[in-house]
Design a protein around this nucleic acid. Structure first.
Lengths: 254, 254
DNA sequence: GTCTATAAGCTGATAGAC
DNA sequence: GTCTATCAGCTTATAGAC
């Protein structure tokens, strides 16, 4: 892994003419009329999330869309290029919204609630992409081509840190909490939750969508409770959690 | 991944004569005199933890110990057999101790504290093996040869569930907590913490062992606080956390 | 745009010389 | 116990016919 010098050459010639196609990925209606390129990205996203980037083969992706592996290279120059198109949009959007929430002119507690709600929402809605970002994080760290991924993660950390610091200064949060440990713990907690919410119920549910044992709403409440109990000043534990305000702040993503 | 029918044949002929060698893995002094088989398992453990089982090649392992890949097959029948020897002991020990703590005749809170302390301790001490168990969990789930791994995980879950239920019945914990979500969250939290504690400080530390910014003790306190704040009855938040008692209970592993 | 065919290299694993 | 040499099958990626 140390000397993983698999060169991704996104040289000149074939570089993607319609990078915006990646956006259609979540907006695309499930009815038939979507172009090949988008369909390939859907298949790749699914495989990368399921098996990891490294362990997914181009043949699997090609099989999923019903063409041969060689034909993929008419649409994408390299396997790495597919990954770029899949993660870039999500990374940029997450970074932008997190920074905006962290800088909003409301109390630190409301910003924290908004951050939790937004990240849970985003990671659940766009779960496959975030699964890729988490599960293949070693690949991203070790590949200079994807430095922007780890860079965005770092910026997110500083946004959270600012909110925590503001909350401590405003005597809303415990002064003795360790920012680093707290953010790390919360961040992975939300990631974990989204992964479980979207995938693990395979073991339980059977029929439609409605018999899901946990609603996303309940999962959000659980985590808000868990997190706020841990960081609020003990004297404030009885206060209601400002979920509505956080919800409103979190939904301003456009 | 669905049709991953890579057969592991641990047929008859070459089956490992000294399976106990895996135990030496953590007990082995770092001085030179350890046999080849143990050295190979050390290298394999490191690689599996770092790159995942699937993505590790037998040639990498062979390189690490300074022999050729073909020579590995004098010591082990298959790559899968190495994995078995690496994880089996840890899985059995974890399962045994967790069940014993969960059944101990003390208050549910002390048992919970003991579970948290023990798992953090064990996952930190034996971090590489637990990283393998977590990172390659899809492999374990999809491979019948390793059913005992997921079986043990399930038993651990029921042990935790019992402690949580006892705590609710004894009016120590909030009656409204969701056992499944709570256990899932705590479990991954501890896993995450151990992973970070052992690996992530690569980015920070420089010289010896002493300048580590976080002691394991501090990490334990952080998590006990975080977890107990979330599940204790609100009226009990001011009570001291019975860490010493938990420590004592957790350390009875022999 | 997809196909056939193929390159160059890696994979886990084996046989037999020493 | 390690070596050399090799297998059959997989990997990403390319060239050129249709």
């Amino acid at each position: 892994m140390a000397e993983d010098t698999k060169q991704a050459r996104l040289s000149g010639a074939k570089t993607a003419p319609k990078a915006a196609a990646a956006q259609q990925l979540k907006a695309a209606p499930k009815t038939g009329k979507i172009d090949r390129r988008t369909r390939i990205l859907q298949a790749a996203t699914h495989r990368f999330a399921e098996c990891g980037f490294d362990f997914t083969t181009v043949r699997q992706i090609a099989d999923d869309v019903g063409i041969l592996s060689g034909s993929l290279y008419h649409h994408f120059a390299t396997k790495d290029e597919m990954l770029h198109e899949i993660v870039r949009g999500a990374v940029q959007q997450l970074r932008g919204t997190v920074k905006r929430i962290a800088a909003a002119p409301v109390s630190a507690e409301r910003r924290l609630v908004a951050l939790v709600l937004f990240e849970l929402d985003e990671m659940t809605r766009n779960q496959q992409v975030h699964a890729i970002l988490t599960n293949s994080r070693r690949f991203f760290r070790g590949n200079p081509e994807f430095a922007y991924v780890v860079e965005a993660k770092k910026e997110n950390f500083y946004a959270w840190k600012r909110v925590l610091k503001d909350g401590i200064d405003a005597r809303l949060f415990k002064p003795e909490i360790d920012p680093f440990l707290t953010i790390l713990t919360i961040s992975r907690m939300l990631n974990t939750a989204a992964d479980w919410y979207r995938n693990e119920d395979v073991y339980v549910s059977g029929s439609g969508e409605s018999d899901k044992p946990y609603t996303l709403d309940k999962v959000k409440d659980f985590h808000l409770d868990f997190i706020l109990n841990a960081i609020r000043l003990p004297s404030r534990t009885a206060e209601p959690i400002p979920r509505q305000d956080g919800e409103a702040l979190a939904s301003i993503t456009a």
